Simulated scan of single mutants.
Amino acid sequence: MGIYQFIIQDWEANSINTKGRIFSTFFRIANLPSGNILARIVLLPFRIFYKLIFEWILGIEIPHQVKIGAGLTVYHLPAIVIHRDVVIGKNCVLRQSTTIGNKTDNGACPVIGNNVNIGASVCILGDVVIGDNVVIGAGSVVVKSIPANSIVVGNPARIIKNTQIHQTPEPVI
């Protein structure tokens, strides 16, 4: 993937969300891979600008080191806090007042799958895995892993629906 494609990889997901498109563009520039020393030096002023504007002024704390797949959508920017060691898959939706990180100092961080829709004021904490195609309702506190194709709500979060397709085994003849 070229630099331009890397920077605009979230634009389609934010086609009607101007704030999300602006944030994702700045995040992707700050998130550009910097494997060599020259790239790190060139990106340093931009990363400082990103930290000042988005973290200190706008209150959206998503460090440039976070690994997030293409299609990130961020609605209502304030009060989003994500630990730098969190891994998020493709097509994730984040809303305001969401915290994703570790439970203890130097503890493990969540791994979030593809197509996960995270409601407002959600906390996802600790060494948990959120499967693909999960919806996490507003105000939920997730401290245990969630299987794919689930809808979870509550504090602590509990599965209210699992849309996993159950296939019946073939008869043995």
Rank of each mutant, 00 (worst) to 15 (best):
I3C: 06
E12S: 10
N14R: 08
S15Y: 08
N17V: 07
F23L: 04
F23K: 01
S24G: 15
F27S: 00
R28K: 12
A30K: 02
A30I: 07
N31C: 13
L32P: 05
G35M: 06
N36V: 10
N36F: 08
A39N: 13
R40F: 09
I41D: 08
L43K: 05
L44Q: 12
P45L: 07
F46D: 04
F46A: 05
F46V: 05
Y50F: 15
E55D: 14
W56K: 13
H64G: 06
A70C: 10
V74W: 05
L77M: 15
V87C: 04
V87W: 02
K90W: 01
L94C: 09
T99Y: 12
V111K: 14
G113V: 12
V116Q: 01
V116Y: 00
G119N: 09
A120V: 13
A120M: 14
V128G: 02
V129Q: 11
V134Y: 02
V135H: 03
I136C: 07
S140Q: 08
V142G: 02
V142L: 09
V143K: 07
A148R: 05
N149R: 07
P156K: 14
R158N: 10
R158Y: 05
K161H: 13
N162Y: 03
I165C: 08
T168Y: 11
P171W: 00
V172R: 12
